[in-house]
C-alpha cells in the first residue's frame, strides 16, 4: 500500500466521513442524537467495536475462507458488541438505558461490516487499526455535532446545561423523528457546499 498510516487515519475525518460521505449506518445516527451525551456514548461504543473487529479481521484474514467471510465477520463483530453491551450495563447504566436497543444493533451497523469487508480483509493490522480509528473518530464527531445541534435547538441545553436561559421556548421539532431527518439532510447539504467549491 502506497498510502501511509496517517493518510488512512485522516481520510476517515473528511473524505470518507461515515454518515455523510458514505451514507452508511444511518439508523443509530438518527436515533441516538437527541443529545450530545447520547451521541458521544454511541460513538465511543462504535469506536471500540470497529477498532477491535478491524484488528481481528485483519489478523485472521489469511485464515478466513472467502466464501464464508461475511458470516465470520458478523460473528467477530457480534462478540465485541456483546462485550460493549455488558461493559456499559456494568459501568454506565443510565446511558445503557437511554441507548437501549441501539447497542445490540451495532451488529448490523453497515459502517462496521463495511470496513471489515472493504478494508480490514485486504490490509495489514496497523493500517486496519488506523482506518478503524479514523472512521470512528469521524463517526463520533458527526454524531456529536448532530447531537449538539439537536440538543441546543430542541431542548435549549448543551450536555444538560441551559444555553439560552429560562425564557427560551424549546423547538421540539428538532428532538423528534422528523427533525432528525431534516437536520441530517441539511448537514449533508452544508458538507456538499463546503466540499464542492
Amino acid at each position: 500500500m502506497a498510502k501511509s498510516i496517517t493518510q488512512e487515519f485522516v481520510k476517515g475525518l473528511w473524505d470518507e466521513i461515515p454518515p455523510f460521505r458514505l451514507v452508511l449506518g444511518l439508523c443509530p445516527v438518527l436515533a441516538v442524537t437527541k443529545s450530545v451525551e447520547n451521541g458521544l456514548g454511541m460513538g465511543m461504543a462504535v469506536v471500540f467495536v470497529l477498532v477491535c473487529s478491524n484488528m481481528l479481521v485483519s489478523l485472521l484474514r489469511n485464515i478466513i475462507p472467502s466464501k464464508v467471510r461475511i458470516a465470520c465477520f458478523i460473528v467477530i463483530i457480534a462478540t465485541f458488541v456483546i462485550v460493549v453491551e455488558l461493559l456499559m450495563q456494568a459501568y454506565t447504566y443510565s446511558l445503557f438505558l437511554k441507548l437501549g436497543i441501539f447497542i445490540p444493533l451495532i451488529v448490523v451497523n453497515c459502517v462496521v461490516l463495511g470496513r471489515a469487508e472493504a478494508f480490514a480483509y485486504k490490509n495489514g493490522v496497523v493500517a486496519s487499526i488506523a482506518d478503524g480509528l479514523g472512521i470512528c473518530v469521524g463517526f463520533t464527531l458527526s454524531l456529536t455535532a448532530l447531537g449538539a445541534l439537536r440538543e441546543v435547538f430542541g431542548s435549549g441545553t448543551f450536555l444538560g446545561m441551559s444555553v439560552f436561559g429560562p425564557s427560551f421556548q424549546p423547538f421540539t421539532f428538532m428532538v423528534e423523528a422528523p427533525g432528525a431527518f431534516v437536520c441530517l439532510g441539511l448537514m449533508l447539504c452544508m458538507m456538499n457546499l463546503a466540499g464542492n467549491k
Binding site: V23, P178, A180, F181, G185, L188, C189, M190, N196
Partner: peptide, 19 residues
Amino acid sequence: PKPLEDTAIGLVVAGMLSL
C-alpha cells in the same frame, strides 16, 4: 439546488413524511 441533490433532499423529504 446542487448541494441538496440526491441523498440530502431525500433526507429532507423523509423528514416531511415522518412529520
